[in-house]
Amino acid sequence: MAKERGALRGLTRRQLLSGASAMGAFVVGSGYVTGARADWATEMRALKPESFATLVQMARDIYPHDRIPDENYVVAVKDYDTQDKAEMAEAGIEALNTRAREQTGDDYARIGWESDRVAVLRSMEDEAFFQTVRGGLVTGLYNQKEVWPIFGYEGESYSKGGYIDRGFDDIAWIG
């Protein structure tokens, strides 16, 4: 299977290596994280910006949906950027980076190929931090109404009168 370059999209290797300002798709400034296209930004309250960017990348690697934009992954893990959870999250990300460096020589978010990052995650999938993040994403990501149209799911239907006149039996390819 071809390797998929996810984390490095839009960046050259030289740019990545040139400084701490670029982590994967994210631009990390002092106290904030923003998308590479600057189409979203989030201010950090408790987590280090680099840690949050790593968490967003981890979320996408756990439940990769190529048509879901980064914003929804950001929303899905934003809850870790609180005083209650930041300590746990920082410790978990530190352990993730340690594992990543053992396997690839790079911190997690600097690993260019998705398959190499997934290999790091597989090696720690039974650990509490991974399971906490994964379990939280099940509702944190998939219960965002904004992502439902991407899957073709229409959500609430009562206010529209159900589907009795809106295609409950409109399948055309069954005889």
């Binding site: 439940y63 990769p64 949906h65 999938e125 998939y142 992502v147």
Partner: peptide, 28 residues
Amino acid sequence: LGLPFMAAFLDPGAWGREFTSALDSYEN
């Protein structure tokens, strides 16, 4: 199941592209 419960119950605990590619086809 709707998309949120499908994500929770299709293969609890599963992750990665084998899982997400199935959800990507939810409409079908």
